[in-house]
Design a protein around this nucleic acid. Structure first.
Length: 344
RNA sequence: GGAGAGGUAGCGAAGUGGCUAAACGCGUCUGACUGUAAAUCAGAUCCCUCCGGGUUCGGCGGUUCGAAACCGUCCCUCUCCA
C-alpha cells in the first residue's frame, strides 16, 4: 500500500473526497508539525485528527523522527531526546520519545510511530551504531509511555545506516519487543539507489513476515517496485504531491514536466492509461496553461493525478502478487517508464 | 506653437568616462525534488565557441588612450500649457 502524506492534517491541495476517489486508505500526518500548530490539544478537542480534518479513513502519524534529520541545522540530540529550534520563531522546543507518544496519543491516529533518529548518509559505523542503540532504547521508552495500545498501533523503526549487522541487530531487537508493525527508516536521505535497496533488504529480511513492514519516505516508482520485491508492505512519500506542485507528473511512460513548451498545444490526456478525475476530463494543454498562469486548480489536478497514479500502481502490484506474476509485472512496468531494471 | 521628460538585452528597469557583455525583476528554457521549514530550489538566457573571439545601450558624426555614459546633429516617444 501507498500512503499519501498530509503533514499538517491535509494532503496539500486535496480534499478527503479527492482522496477517497483516488482510492487512498491510510494517510499520514506529522507529530512535530501538529504539535507546533495548532497543538495536539486542539486536535484532541476536535475529536482526533480524522474528525479534525474530516477524513473518514485510517491515519498514521509520524513521530517527529524525520524532523531530527530534516531540521538538523536547528537541533541537538542527547539520550533524553531532541532539542529543536523552531525555524519559524526561534522558540526552543524539546521532543522526547515519551513526549512524541503522548502527543500522538492525543492526535489519535490509528497507527503511530516510535520516536527515532533518522541519521544522514553517509554516517560512520560508530555513529550509526550508537544512534541505532539509542533509537532502540527510545522505542522501548515510547512503548512504555503508550496509553492506548488497543486503539493505536505503535510501530518500531529499524535504523542502522548502511551497515548490515546494525540493521539486522536493530530489526531483531525490535522484533523481540513485539510491536504490531515495523518500519524501516533512515533511507532516501541522500544515498544512491543500490545502497538504499541494500539497507531495505537487510532490514526487511530480519522482520517478521506476519507483521506489516513499512518503508518510510519512499515513493519513487522504481524504488517502490524494487522494495516490494524485498517484502515491503507499506510506503509513504511526499513525492507525488510535491512533484505535482512543481509541475511534474507521473505517467505510465515516465515523468514529464507539464510546463514544457511542447505541451502548449497537446490536447491529449496526461496519461491515457490513468483513470483519475484529471485524466478523464482535462488535457495536457489545459494543465500547461494553468501552470503558466499560476492557477491553483492546475496544482490540484496534478496532485489528484499523481496520487491516483501511485495508488493505482499499488493496486496493480497487489493483483500481480496474488496472481504470482509480480516479477514480470515489475520488469515490464519499469521498462515502460524508462527505468533501468535492477532485479532486486 | 510653448515648456519639460525620455529612448539600455524578449519586456520592465539600474547604470552617467575605465572595475560593464551591462545590476535587478519578469518572461523564456533546462534540471532537481523520496517518513514536507519545498505552490520550492538550482542553472542558462546578444552571436559564434575549447581556450577565446565577434558585435551591442534610438541613428549618424565627434571628443578621449578608453564612451551606454561627454559634445553636435537627426529621428522617435511621453507629459503639461496654449
Amino acid at each position: 500500500m501507498f500512503m499519501p502524506v498530509g503533514t499538517q492534517a491535509t494532503v496539500k491541495f486535496l480534499s478527503p473526497e479527492d482522496l477517497y476517489e483516488a482510492g487512498a486508505g491510510v494517510i499520514l500526518a506529522n507529530t512535530y508539525h501538529l504539535w507546533l500548530q495548532p497543538g495536539e490539544e486542539i486536535v484532541h478537542q476536535a475529536g482526533g485528527v480524522q474528525k479534525f480534518m474530516n477524513y473518514h479513513g485510517p491515519m498514521l502519524t509520524d513521530s517527529g523522527g524525520f524532523q531530527v534529520f530534516s531540521l538538523a541545522d536547528a537541533r541537538k540530540i542527547n539520550e533524553d531526546g531532541v532539542t529543536f529550534k523552531n525555524p519559524r520563531n526561534g522558540d526552543t522546543l524539546f521532543l522526547s520519545p515519551e513526549k512524541s507518544i503522548q502527543i500522538q496519543n492525543k492526535i489519535g491516529a490509528d497507527i503511530i510511530m516510535s520516536f527515532d533518529e533518522c541519521i544522514p548518509y553517509p554516517a560512520t559505523y560508530e555513529y550509526a551504531k550508537a544512534s541505532m542503540e539509542r533509537t532502540l532504547r527510545w522505542a522501548q521508552r515510547g512503548k512504555d509511555a503508550h496509553t492506548n495500545p488497543d486503539t493505536q498501533a505503535l510501530f518500531g523503526i529499524v535504523q542502522g545506516g548502511d551497515y548490515e549487522d546494525l540493521r539486522l541487530y536493530c530489526a531483531e531487537k525490535l522484533t523481540e519487543m513485539d510491536f504490531p508493525g515495523y518500519a524501516i527508516g533512515g533511507t532516501s536521505v541522500g544515498e544512491d539507489k543500490e545502497t538504499m535497496l541494500r539497507m531495505v533488504g537487510w532490514s526487511a529480511k530480519a522482520l517478521p513476515e506476519n507483521k506489516p513492514r513499512y518503508l518510510m519516505g519512499v515513493g519513487a516508482v522504481n524504488d517502490l517496485l524494487e522494495s516490494i520485491s524485498l517484502n515491503v508492505d507499506m510506503f509513504d512519500c511526499v513525492l507525488p504531491t510535491r512533484l505535482a506542485r512543481h509541475g511534474t507528473l507521473l505517467t505510465s511512460q515516465g515523468r514529464i514536466n507539464i510546463k514544457k513548451a511542447v505541451y502548449k498545444d497537446d490536447f491529449s490526456p496526461l496519461d491515457p492509461l490513468c483513470d483519475c478525475y484529471c485524466c478523464r476530463n482535462y488535457t495536457k494543454a489545459y494543465l500547461n496553461h494553468l501552470f503558466r498562469a499560476e492557477e491553483g486548480f492546475g496544482t490540484r489536478l496534478l496532485s489528484i493525478h499523481n496520487v491516483r497514479f501511485l495508488l493505482h500502481l499499488m493496486e496493480e502490484a497487489r493483483a500481480a502478487i496474488k496472481e504470482d506474476r509480480y516479477a514480470t509485472f515489475k520488469q515490464e512496468t519499469l521498462s515502460r517508464m524508462k527505468f533501468d531494471y535492477r532485479g532486486f
